[in-house]
């Protein structure tokens, strides 16, 4: 368990609230201001707006606004992110990380599409459109099989993401070598070059090379 997870657990017992200071700086935020900016959504559904949408609704929006970069089937054009496919590939030589194969929470899809998509025209989608697009991305990944399934705040919890249990906390501390490192005769004989960057030749031309 990382130092941070441990210390967080400790904080839960000893923390006292950070008492309000009184420098007289700032002013209270209004409800409308908070509503305008606070659009973040969590895995437990906190932050989800009212509204709803189906994959069938989302397909047209997707084809109009998303497919140009992400591909008609979510396969990703050029180097834009692939959204669908890759199931069962995470332990492969070349894993494919998509919403379906990798993302642990459906809330992340809603939140990200809502705040950052379409690329170059962020926050232009209505809440219903974001529900519909989220449903369609899940449909492309076979996570929703019924294209008329109504995704909403109420039905959100019914969606199960295949890789939700695929993550574990930072445990790098177990990797660190203990003690002083070797200073002399540290390798089994003289070292030789086994691989050269020049063979791949992918470095951008910057100077004479």
């Amino acid at each position: 368990m990382s130092k941070w997870v441990k210390s967080l657990a400790l904080v839960a017992f000893v923390a006292t609230p950070l008492a309000a200071a009184d420098l007289g700086l700032g002013r209270p935020a209004t409800e409308a201001e908070i509503t305008a900016w606070d659009i973040d959504v969590r895995p437990d559904g906190q932050g989800l707006p009212e509204g709803q949408g189906t994959a069938a609704d989302g397909e047209e929006i997707y084809n109009d606004q998303c497919a140009y970069c992400h591909g008609v089937f979510g396969e990703g054009e050029d180097r834009w992110p692939q959204l669908a496919g890759g199931e069962g590939s995470l332990a492969d030589e070349t894993p494919i990380k998509t919403v379906g194969s990798y993302w642990p929470y459906v809330s992340t899809v809603f939140d990200y599409v809502h705040r950052a998509m379409p690329f170059g025209y962020a926050q232009s989608l209505s809440d219903d459109e974001v529900y519909a697009l989220t449903a369609y991305i899940l449909y492309m990944n076979d996570i929703i099989e019924d294209e008329e399934f109504v995704l909403s705040k109420a039905s959100f919890g019914e969606v199960e993401m295949p890789n939700e249990s695929g993550f574990f906390p930072d445990d790098r501390e177990a990797e660190y070598a203990a003690g002083e490192p070797c200073m002399t005769d540290c390798t089994n004989g003289p070292m030789a070059v086994t691989m050269r960057a020049r063979v791949l030749d992918v470095t951008p031309e910057t100077e004479e090379q």
Partner: peptide, 22 residues
């Protein structure tokens, strides 16, 4: 919040297919 940059990105996929987060 488990947002995009701490789930889809900035998680470290190990060879067994499991990923470290945070």
């Amino acid at each position: 919040w488990h947002h995009r940059e701490e789930t889809s990105k900035y998680t470290d996929l190990m060879s067994n297919g499991k990923a470290r987060r945070f």
